[in-house]
């Protein structure tokens, strides 16, 4: 994406965001909307819904700008977490659950064939797709579907301790794929 707006350092970006002007929005949107959209699409496969979630995400980023704390993480991480949470919120609504796409996705999860059925392997999914099955399953349920460890333990009929251990192992695996 070629952007004509001047580049800002992370702290300047935070200032822009906190002042809430159009200039800041233009830059943030040009720079980050694609990455945010990609995270949203990895959770909400339907584009119409994903567009709504992206809108929701930016509105939240704007409203919550004053709560962003640079000491707790990078701006990108913060924005991605807002995008993911917004997507997960939508996925949990009745409206979405009743939509066909989601039913297919859910079936896919229980059939454990996510990567096969989801050719749009984007973002984190493309990395997760290469993991071994028991790791993939844990990341899928926790990251992409937002289930807590307790919920996963119930769902998979596994002791909570095993879920914890497996999720940690999956995350260590994930890091190795990122930082070779």
């Amino acid at each position: 994406m070629i952007s004509k707006v001047p580049a800002f350092a992370e702290n300047e970006l935070v200032d822009l965001l906190k002042t809430g002007g159009k200039q800041g929005f233009d830059y943030l949107y040009e720079h980050y909307s694609g990455a945010l959209y990609s995270v949203i699409l990895s959770i909400v496969s339907d584009r119409e819904y994903a567009n709504d979630v992206l809108q929701e995400t930016f509105v939240k980023i704007w409203k919550q700008a004053s709560t962003y704390d640079a000491g707790k993480g990078r701006l990108y991480t913060w924005m991605i977490q807002i995008a993911r949470n917004s997507a997960l919120d939508l996925v949990r609504t009745k409206k979405y659950m009743m939509s066909k796409q989601n039913r297919e996705l859910s079936e896919a999860v229980y059939d454990q064939e996510v990567s096969g059925l989801n050719p749009d392997s984007i973002g984190l999914r493309s990395v997760v797709g290469k993991m071994k099955q028991e790791h993939k399953e844990l990341i899928e349920l926790s990251y992409f579907q937002g289930f807590t460890q307790e919920e996963i333990s119930d769902k998979l009929n596994l002791p909570l301790g095993t879920v914890k251990t497996r999720l940690r192992a999956a995350l260590i695996q994930l890091r190795k794929m990122y930082l070779p």
Partner: peptide, 18 residues
């Protein structure tokens, strides 16, 4: 470090919204 590597990967695999 992990944040930066996630960010780099995320920026590379960005999907343009409409």
């Amino acid at each position: 470090d992990f944040e930066i590597s996630l960010e780099q990967q995320g920026m590379q695999q960005a999907a343009a919204p409409p």
